[in-house]
């Protein structure tokens, strides 16, 4: 089963918003941090649980945004996503349906059985994108789900949705479908470090070519060929003066001292013995 999870980075206000004099100041880059949308983390967690419950689940994480959005894909990979797609484009609030059109394009290009996304975003929170994608693709959408089960014998999905005041509603839905996920008591798992770090190599990048009107088309951006990653190499500290940098290169980073040269094997071993006694590694028998 191919599951596509739509995720994004949201702005999180760090400072105290009451102290800011106007709304623009709250969104000043100094006052905000970027984090993965908490509802999308829930969607990723839901996808992982599906993967664990049945065989043959392939998870693709898709994000749209500038370079900073790549972190969301890294976290998705850390949580267990198999394929990562980054669409290098920027959509501000108010263009949700355009974004939905773009995502629908990506999703249908990718091929899918199930699309999962967060109910809404932490920052703008319109909750339009998921349903928009379903509408454009012409498939059913279920919102506010807290639990997704697959019925045996290839039956439809059984979805538990939140309906408020602690009530749940259980619905059945055929595939393909779009499901938006509510935050629930199922805590999203912590991303694994190794997979988090390995993510950047796996990202497939698309650029958007804007056609007249609302039509968009995607162009695959050639990724770099795998090349040996430069290992760490001794480099002098840039803050030093030119003469000191040169000195560091000459000595390999170590200060040169007057050293006592061992004249023969006997005096060398004597020196070693004296050193060990002096520093308490050996007890002096004499």
């Amino acid at each position: 089963m191919k599951v596509v999870v739509l995720i994004k980075m949201t702005t999180v206000i760090r400072g105290n918003p009451n102290r800011a004099e106007n709304l623009e100041a709250i969104l000043d880059p100094g006052n905000v941090a970027l984090d993965v949308n908490s509802y999308d983390l829930a969607a990723l967690e839901e996808a992982q649980r599906l993967k664990e419950s049945i065989d043959y689940v392939h998870i693709t994480a898709v994000t749209v945004g500038p370079e900073s959005a790549v972190k969301a894909l890294q976290i998705a990979h850390g949580m267990g996503a198999d394929e990562l797609i980054w669409v290098d484009a920027q959509y501000e609030g108010g263009r949700e349906m355009e974004l939905a059109g773009l995502l629908a394009e990506v999703v249908s290009k990718q091929g899918f059985d199930l699309v999962l996304c967060g109910l809404k975003s932490d920052d703008v929170g319109t909750g339009l994108v998921g349903i928009g994608v379903a509408e454009i693709l012409g498939i059913p959408a279920v919102t506010r789900s807290v639990k997704i089960e697959i019925l045996p014998d290839g039956g439809p999905l059984q979805i538990h949705r939140h309906v408020g005041k602690g009530n749940r509603e259980v619905v059945h839905c055929p595939l393909p479908a779009v499901i938006t996920v509510e935050r629930s008591r199922r805590m999203p798992r912590y991303p694994g470090v190794a997979r988090y770090l390995a993510a950047r190599k796996k990202i497939i990048r698309y650029a958007v070519e804007q056609q007249p009107g609302t039509q968009v088309s995607l162009r695959h951006v050639e990724t770099k060929k795998a090349q040996p990653r430069p290992k760490k190499i001794f480099t002098p500290d840039d803050n030093l003066s030119a003469a000191d940098r040169m000195k560091m290169i000459m000595t390999g980073g170590m200060a040169r001292k007057k050293k006592k040269k061992a004249q023969s094997v006997v005096s060398g071993s004597e020196q070693l013995y004296n050193f060990l006694v002096k520093n308490g590694f050996l007890k002096n028998k004499a």
Partner: peptide, 16 residues
């Protein structure tokens, strides 16, 4: 007096 390959880091800086 210079260590072997001591200026390779300059190329490494550009290579990346």
């Amino acid at each position: 007096d210079f260590p072997l390959g001591c200026f390779t880091y300059l190329a490494s800086n550009i290579k990346r």
